[in-house]
Write a protein that binds this DNA or RNA. Sequence first.
DNA 1: TAGAATCCGGACCCTGGGTCCGCTTCAACG
DNA 2: CGTTGAAGCGGACCCAGGGTCCGGATTCTA
Lengths: 203, 203
Amino acid sequence: MPERQPSRRDAIRNREAVLAAADALFTRRQSPEDVTMADVAASAGVGKGTLFRAFGDRAGLLRALYEARLEPVRRAVESGPPPLGPETPPRDRVPALLDAALCFKLDNRRLALALEGSGGSSPYRAEHYERWHGLLRAVLEQIPGLTDSDFTAHALLAATRADLVEHLAGEERVPRERMRSQLAHFVTRVLASGPLPGVTVEE
Amino acid sequence: MPERQPSRRDAIRNREAVLAAADALFTRRQSPEDVTMADVAASAGVGKGTLFRAFGDRAGLLRALYEARLEPVRRAVESGPPPLGPETPPRDRVPALLDAALCFKLDNRRLALALEGSGGSSPYRAEHYERWHGLLRAVLEQIPGLTDSDFTAHALLAATRADLVEHLAGEERVPRERMRSQLAHFVTRVLASGPLPGVTVEE
DNA sequence: TAGAATCCGGACCCTGGGTCCGCTTCAACG
DNA sequence: CGTTGAAGCGGACCCAGGGTCCGGATTCTA
């Protein structure tokens, strides 16, 4: 359990300092690759030992940052008003969820990139991915006529993968709003064909 | 140009040996992470210098392996018979292409994983991705009523990402055929709703 | 304020990708 | 064949960066 809250003042202060410094560094630097742990420690005015004790390892630091950023979105999804909150009818909530995911990645490109691409284990084991996927899956399941909710949830979320978003936004210069509408259209298509009677794929 | 064909016998022989050794190692070992360049060199009975001169760097080796494996698929797509070849009507070719991509990833899980997740640059800059995407995009464009071919191509390909495939096949034990049919259904849904008149998104 | 638990931090270790250069091997030519 | 020089070989070496360690400073408790 390397993630428990420390008790001493300096420990808490340092933890905050590290978080802030890392945040700043990741947004400033081009690629997450050239933000080194030593950099973070130095920039936070702290020794490497402190850094690693507080967060376990690089992935731990990334996770902590990510969770912090994700927190408002999580709350909006779990208990907020429509179209993100649980009151929303499934057909409207699915696109809203994916839009939220996309916007989040757009707003936290470097960070998401660093976390998803953190070499080691796949992003699919990350606990926050499991949350997104589980929720999306559950909502999809409530849409009549839709099968394979599990796979569909994965496939839809894949369209918001950090490196894809980064590629589109960074390399291909696709503007934010255009991307959102494209994703929305895509989601619409996936949802549209399921339940409509008479809509069959001509063989 | 670190990739040109060498002239001397021993050079050629060594290149083959390295390729074979790497191939074996990547399929044998659990994670691509714990196949080290030194491992490959040792297993091929060759010095590290030789390895690096032949392939430039780790990514180069991965690329060479990948391209070699991909070659038959590429030919089938570019000049083979339906449903992969260019004669196929777009509506049938799209699912065929994606199925081929999926099968390829299934058959070359470790390798694809190693290449996509090779830390450094995003998989979207890789030349083979550009090929898949460009082709898929072009085929999608021929389907009447489909817009955003560019994004759609990205989104569909994202559903065959190596780490997702690995997760589904490895972690969740989804059998091959089930996965193929799920992907096929997904693709069908995306393609189905486009051209049908009267299918509009209620705003 | 003394004592002890906790924390700090930078020197240190280790792995793994990538380089270097003296030696070997190949093939072309006499 | 023997010579020769260029292409290739390979393992010692370098370096960055993640992660560890422990003597000393700091903070809480009594």
